[in-house]
Design a protein around this nucleic acid. Sequence first.
DNA 1: CGTAGCTTGCTACTCATCGTTACAAAGTCC
DNA 2: GGACTTTGTAACGATGAGTAGCAAGCTACG
Lengths: 207, 207
Amino acid sequence: MASDRLTLGVAARLSRYLQVLTQARKMGKTSISSQAISEYTGVNPTQIRRDLSGFGKFGKRGVGYDIDSLIEQIRKILRTSGTHNIALFGAGNLGQAIASSSVFGDHGFQISAIFDVSPERVGQKVGDLTIRHYDAFAEIAAREGIMVGVLAVPGDVAQHVADDLVAAGVKIIFNYSDALLSVPSDVTVHTSSPAVELLYALYFYLS
Amino acid sequence: MASDRLTLGVAARLSRYLQVLTQARKMGKTSISSQAISEYTGVNPTQIRRDLSGFGKFGKRGVGYDIDSLIEQIRKILRTSGTHNIALFGAGNLGQAIASSSVFGDHGFQISAIFDVSPERVGQKVGDLTIRHYDAFAEIAAREGIMVGVLAVPGDVAQHVADDLVAAGVKIIFNYSDALLSVPSDVTVHTSSPAVELLYALYFYLS
DNA sequence: CGTAGCTTGCTACTCATCGTTACAAAGTCC
DNA sequence: GGACTTTGTAACGATGAGTAGCAAGCTACG
């Protein structure tokens, strides 16, 4: 199991392919070549074929890869097939944007609950979901076994929420706030930082 | 100039350090050790010191790095000091969330204009900015020299907006939509894909 | 003042990874 | 049938990253 664990690089690239494939599928494409994936990801076409061919023969020579089946294969390789329940914290502009978009749903993440503390928001609906009060989180987490939490809350309360998430057994925290979160070593924090990604892109443009 | 260009890895890590440093500064810290940066970034402490010491002696032995000055130094290394004007497209939930947060501002990106097409939104204020009609973009871009565009628009119009941005001379597009954008090779598209980043984190947790 | 404990800066070495080149096999298109 | 495309695969070389180790400089505390 853990022995044939993918290396960081391979897993990162496979995820990246998955992103492009999912987008391409949304655009109505059904087939794609390693060359095309390369243009969208910046990864060398040979590298792409090598990454994929290490797990089986997914492509058709002269044609390329069938997008639907390749998505399925990669998700199988990443062992992330099926749906995963996530909980969303904060129903402000950002939280509502996340809840009403399909970004997570397209990749098998189902938002199973959305929490806030504002009396004006609690009880309102966002898509199919009703915003619940944050106090109900512990109970719901215990019942549904939430493993991933998404933080769309103000930075000054992020650590507090993160602590509660850790206590409830959440293992992966996606942090949209600007707070630096301290968590036990068995919990992964991923912080969204679009501005930093932009700086990175800007550097290469300016050079 | 381009000769002493940083490698991809170094630039990526420096950006990452910048993220953590900016967060740490917000939390009120003034100094940080390579060990601490390592815990937040996952990068080896020796690697961090090597990355930094290649450009000068920024740290104090026995103490660590002064956060303010290190941020300044890294931004100088990345040649992204100063402020950069960006334009934001789409004033829905996501657009408003971006406009009212400080994520971009903290890193020197100033949102100089926000555009939408909805008559209900145009004319309203988000923070200090007034939402303008999309038709005004070409003129404003010509006057202010926008180099970075942020797309918080629906996927089905993203390509159309991207084409207009390219025509107006925008070189970096930050894409929050789920569309796969086609642009000339001298334009960089960076697509936000939180779900894919989550899949990546999930893989390593499950292994 | 002086000693103990950090932390940086720096070097040398090793190993893994990625890009490159090359080419055969299998498919499509005309 | 023939030209063209694209995958699958191997070999090689260059680059990058992890590791270990150590001296120098700073702080803190008696």
